[in-house]
Design a protein around this nucleic acid. Sequence first.
DNA 1: ATATATGATTCGGC
DNA 2: GCCGAATCATATAT
Length: 443
Amino acid sequence: MDEQARIMQALGGVSLAGHSVQGGMGLQPPHGHDGTDDGRKQDIGDILHQIMTITDQSLDEAQAKKHGLNCHRMKPALFSVLCEIKEKTGLSIRGSQEEDPPDPQLMRLDNMLLAEGVSGPEKGGGSAAAAAAAAASGGASDNSIEHSDYRSKLTQIRQIYHTELEKYEQACNEFTTHVMNLLREQSRTRPISPKEIERMVGIIHRKFSSIQMQLKQSTCEAVMILRSRFLDARRKRRNFSKQATEILNEYFYSHLSNPYPSEEAKEELAKKCSITVSQVGADSLSQDTVVSNWFGNKRIRYKKNIGKFQEEANLYAAKTAVTAAHAVAAAVQNSQTNSPTTPNSGSSGSFNLPNSGDMFLSMQSLNGDSYQGAQVGVNVQSQVDTLRHVISQTAGYSEALGGNTMYSPNGLNANGGWHDAMTPSSVISPTEGPGSVHSDTSN
DNA sequence: ATATATGATTCGGC
DNA sequence: GCCGAATCATATAT
């Protein structure tokens, strides 16, 4: 019941005509300025007395009076007169109350609540970003601890919001029916048009919706605070697991000529990584995106400082060489067997490949022999990439005299871009001379 | 405490 | 929409 009292207070402006003081609270105007203190005290005493009288009047008494009035034989006539007067004086008080225009601020709030999954369907899966990402990739990648924490907090907010909203709704309905009943009852003693009732209901609803807006606003605030608290956490970088980087690196170095995984490849990589890691990357990011990020970073960083990645490249090249490229690896073992693994003689970054021409000539012939020429698929290309590393590793230390020919994996041209990998023939075509092979990589 | 590595984001170009 | 480049911000190594 005190709920209603609160509401009444909120509805301050609404005066329920007719219910106003029955006893006629004839407040005497204060005695101007001449009033002494005694006079004022007298006034106050009067007022108090009147108030007491009013409050002393029992409801029954009032009811009885009203009943008496209703039964008065003159009542119908008087009532009709009242109606007439009212009609004349101005029922046209306002037709101007046009349908309330959608408050832009309210709309903004609504949108935000909807976007955050607060006001949406019950099964809102966390933040909009996460939901979108999950919907886009079809993968439920959001299962980090922080994220679930965030979600539980959000759920809490949502629950509070909904219960409050419901409470307000109910209170609004209750109050509306109460007022309508009151007005209906009063319409027996005084003329009240349905329009007036409608108007009253409108006023009530407006008041309540303003209360609702406050609720929405505070909910939004709560969400914002929650967000700002957790967004940082969400943005926090977390390194991938070793296995994940291993897988990604493997792919990268075995596709060095064209390290641009297709959509399917990305998906597969993501799956592979996520199987072992349970999540490829930070929350609320689709796995594809994470893989793409990784490759983007890898490409640019590899290109920026190839030397720095040489060791890694060799490592993965060797790794894939023994696992993936057995057939070719066997063939190349000739060149590998008699050479200890002591790559990069000194120079930090660049691979000194003195006899690079010879090196790749042998490579080419090898390649050509095995696969007959120009129609080499990408998978083969990957093996070639791998082998090149192995070979260059073995050949790298054999007396540096050819200047600083940076070892540039076939795909990477002088301009620093990976050229089209679907035409590897230009690189490994046996019909081409050895010189042309590396003409674009040596600067 | 500093340096480096690394994942993510932003921005301009295509 | 993807890519490269620059940059941010943090994780990790020194």
